[in-house]
Computed example of a mutant assay.
Amino acid sequence: MSDLKTILVINGPNLDMLGTRQPEVYGHDTLADVEALCRQTAEAQGIAVDFRQSDSEAEIMGWIKRARGTAAGILINPAGFTSTSIAILDALLIYDGPIIEVHISPLFRRDEFRHLSYVSKAATAKIEGFGIQGYAFALTRLAQLSRAA
């Protein structure tokens, strides 16, 4: 059994299409690029990542609930569920560790209906508009918080 603390990295709907879906908004990096960055950052920080993506709200909720007591933190890019999922918010409110919400693009520059984030109501912090580098920022902070716990 590893002594490394694990951060659960959750990617919501359509993030598997990064690199091809609206590159003018999300850039040309793919989800594989995001995962590689997360693994590289985690290794440098002395933590592990459990990297996942789903288009299913129920699956994401299940991951969050199972993370309770097993993950040192959650990094979540809820994507399309950001402004629609009270159910994901409720699951996050059950979680007992730090949560950082990440968005590749700045929500405040997007359609007005995207400005609301239910996830933010449960998040310890929110990082948006830094492209995929926001994931590295979030993992670095979650590693710091896990060491302080």
Rank of each mutant, 00 (worst) to 15 (best):
M1C: 04
M1H: 12
M1T: 06
S2K: 15
S2D: 07
D3G: 05
D3P: 04
L4H: 07
L4V: 00
K5C: 03
K5M: 11
T6S: 03
T6A: 12
L8T: 12
L8K: 11
V9W: 08
N11T: 11
N11M: 05
N14K: 02
N14I: 01
L15D: 06
M17K: 15
G19V: 13
T20N: 01
T20G: 00
T20I: 09
R21K: 13
P23N: 00
E24P: 12
V25K: 05
G27Q: 08
H28K: 12
D29I: 03
T30I: 02
V34R: 03
V34I: 15
V34K: 10
E35Q: 15
E35W: 08
A36F: 10
A36T: 11
C38G: 06
C38H: 09
A42V: 03
E43Q: 14
A44H: 02
G46V: 08
G46C: 06
G46M: 03
I47Y: 02
A48D: 14
A48N: 13
V49H: 02
F51V: 11
Q53P: 04
D55K: 14
S56L: 05
E57M: 07
E57T: 04
A58T: 02
E59T: 12
I60D: 03
M61S: 05
M61E: 14
M61W: 00
W63I: 00
I64W: 02
K65G: 00
R68G: 08
R68N: 14
G69A: 15
G69P: 02
T70R: 12
A71T: 09
A71V: 02
N77P: 08
P78Q: 11
P78S: 15
P78L: 13
P78F: 08
A79M: 09
A79W: 06
G80E: 05
G80N: 04
F81N: 05
F81G: 01
T82M: 15
T82S: 13
S83R: 10
S83G: 11
S83L: 07
T84F: 02
T84H: 01
T84C: 00
S85W: 00
I86Y: 07
A87Q: 02
I88R: 03
I88P: 00
L89C: 01
L89G: 04
L89A: 05
D90V: 09
A91K: 00
L92N: 09
L92Y: 05
L93M: 13
I94S: 09
I94R: 04
D96I: 10
P98S: 15
E101W: 05
V102G: 09
V102W: 07
V102K: 12
I104V: 13
S105K: 07
F108N: 06
F108P: 03
R109Y: 07
R109P: 05
R110D: 11
R110L: 04
R110Y: 04
R110M: 05
D111K: 07
E112N: 02
H115G: 08
L116P: 00
S117E: 00
V119G: 02
V119I: 15
S120I: 01
S120F: 01
S120G: 03
A122H: 04
A123D: 08
K126S: 13
K126A: 08
E128R: 11
E128L: 09
G129V: 10
F130P: 12
G131S: 09
Q133A: 14
G134W: 13
A136K: 14
A138I: 13
A138H: 10
A138K: 06
T140G: 15
R141W: 06
L142M: 11
A143V: 04
Q144G: 05
S146E: 07
R147S: 07
R147H: 11
A148M: 12
A148D: 04
